[in-house]
Design a protein around this nucleic acid. Structure first.
Lengths: 241, 241
DNA sequence: CGTCCCGTTGAAGTCTGTCAACATCCGTGG
DNA sequence: CCACGGATGTTGACAGACTTCAACGGGACG
């Protein structure tokens, strides 16, 4: 059962820039299929060139890089609306891997058609570049956080980003949202040890800032969070591909 | 005295993808001027939308983000061939600032013409996306380095990247290249303190790996460097805009 | 010749990592 | 039904990498 772009559940969300009717029908042709991925599925692999690109419809995943010594750097949490494989699409090789953490449904595109997209529908090409710039912006923020902030604030930043993104796609109900990752995932994203991550999370809970237990995240004091982070916790509108 | 694209000193370098004659003449029209910037000049500012974009012809600079507490994260060293302002060009707002460190000469483009570029010359639009992906790739590497590696290797990584890039644009003579940044700049790029950066640099020198003194960097044991970093120290070919 | 910036070095302090132990949950298999 | 192992989360004690504080040297510049 394939979702039609017309009925795309993401398309009306305020997080995403608007679609013209023209773009909509073009994307419908660009889309080659739909795919369901079980938890643990490797969608894209670091160093390889994937023939397929994806847009996440539902579910969550992880982007990460492995270092030669076996350590892992998580470079992003994948959520609905994210476009995966841009590096493979335009550079020919992924700089990181992408793995499903929950069951995911994905729009599938053909890498070979990316060039068509730029030549036949430049607004969409522009959107691809826009998405790449958004990602660059995000990684800059992440680098600044990992490089400059103490552990307590690193965790606060990551949780705030996740929560605000969940808000923007309507996945927060009752001030709670599902957060299916492990503390190890978070630690690997922030360059912290698992133990220290756990202790600082406990501190944030004791301080009444936020609670993450049993896969559920709730922000208990948004004012304190925004005061600590400035506007670094906010998410920006972006195109949807 | 304006450099003509035909005579662009960067254009033949193996680091950059090839130019068709068609692209060349188009870029000549896209280019609105040339600019010289003294050390300390702010070329682009975090949070603002610049009317101009640049390609670096000569000289070097810094990309950085300021945090509210006054700390600074350097997110990149700017070198000849780099394209500046991509975020402003497609997103409308810069996520970081760019400052000249040496005297720089820059090709100047008009932000208003970026859209023309995508619509009238899609290969160039594709190249813009390619450049954004290269930057995303770089920031992923930087994040992994800052997040996972010990100080000694962080510095080795940064120096290797810089040196290899200098090699690729023919700025290494006699196994030495000019490195006009300060140790504070490097420390802010790697999330280290100035003092520790200094001490680990001294250790790298004592170990016979590399020497950075009086603004000159030389790599004394490239084998040891590549062995320590794997292929993380390498630079990739990219489009030139 | 004083001042400022940058680099260098030593000593002390602390944030964070490592080690270790235990609790909980869950799927598997006896 | 219960035993078992594996993955995840929690907590305490200790160790260490890195930061902070402090002082000094050299070069550039007015």
């Amino acid at each position: 059962m394939v979702t039609k772009c017309t009925n795309c559940p993401l398309r009306g969300l305020p997080l995403f820039l608007e679609f013209s009717q023209d773009e909509l029908s073009f994307m419908q042709r660009f889309k080659t299929g739909e795919m369901e991925a079980e938890p643990g599925t490797h969608l894209l692999s670091q160093g390889e060139q994937s023939p397929q690109l994806f847009t996440v419809l539902t579910g969550m995943g992880l982007k990460y890089k492995m270092l030669r010594d076996g350590s892992r750097q998580v470079v992003g949490f994948v959520m609905p609306g994210d476009f995966l494989g841009l590096q493979a699409g335009v550079m020919g090789e992924m700089g990181h891997s992408v793995e499903a953490v929950t069951t995911m449904t994905l729009c599938v595109f053909n890498r070979a058609n990316v060039w068509d997209l730029f030549s036949k529908h430049p607004t969409r090409g522009f959107d691809i570049a826009h998405l790449a710039a958004v990602e660059e912006h995000f990684l800059g923020d992440a680098l600044a956080t990992v490089g400059q902030r103490p552990a307590y604030e690193k965790i606060a930043w990551a949780m705030a980003r996740f929560f605000n993104r969940a808000l923007a796609i309507g996945q927060v109900v009752d001030n709670k949202t599902s957060l299916p990752f492990t503390q190890q995932d978070l630690a690997d994203a922030l360059g912290l040890s698992l133990v220290h991550t756990n202790k600082q999370l406990a501190q944030l809970r004791r301080d009444g800032i936020l609670t993450w237990q049993k896969g559920e995240l709730s922000v208990d004091d948004m004012d304190a969070l925004t005061h600590m982070l400035g506007d670094d916790g906010e998410v920006q509108t972006r195109p949807l591909v």
